[in-house]
Amino acid sequence: MSDWVDVCPEDAIENEDVIRFDHAGRTFAIYRDADGAVFCTDGLCSHEHVHLADGLVMDDTIECPRHNGRFNYKTGAALRTPACVALATYPARLNAGRVEVQV
């Protein structure tokens, strides 16, 4: 398993929101749920090449900004067409006021 990678201060992501994080030539989406816990998935919708960080977080779902496909960002599961293929998920944590991911 790779090392933890620093993303941002924890207050850079609001609860029930998402940001884009680019690292080592890849792009990820970093989420906080309503309780402030952090999660990480691939950054692009599995349906088409669209950044999920421009989408809408509702409860445990992220909705793609172009076609409204939905995923559970905690499990990566595709919930609504046109999204059919699950997102890869990655470990994420809060550590000393910073968001870190293992990608």
């Binding site: 349906h47 088409e48 172009r66 076609h67 067409t81 046109p82």
Partner: peptide, 10 residues
């Protein structure tokens, strides 16, 4: 038509 309209938006 759900797929058709997704393509219309793409």
């Amino acid at each position: 038509w759900r797929w058709s309209h997704a393509r219309h938006h793409t």
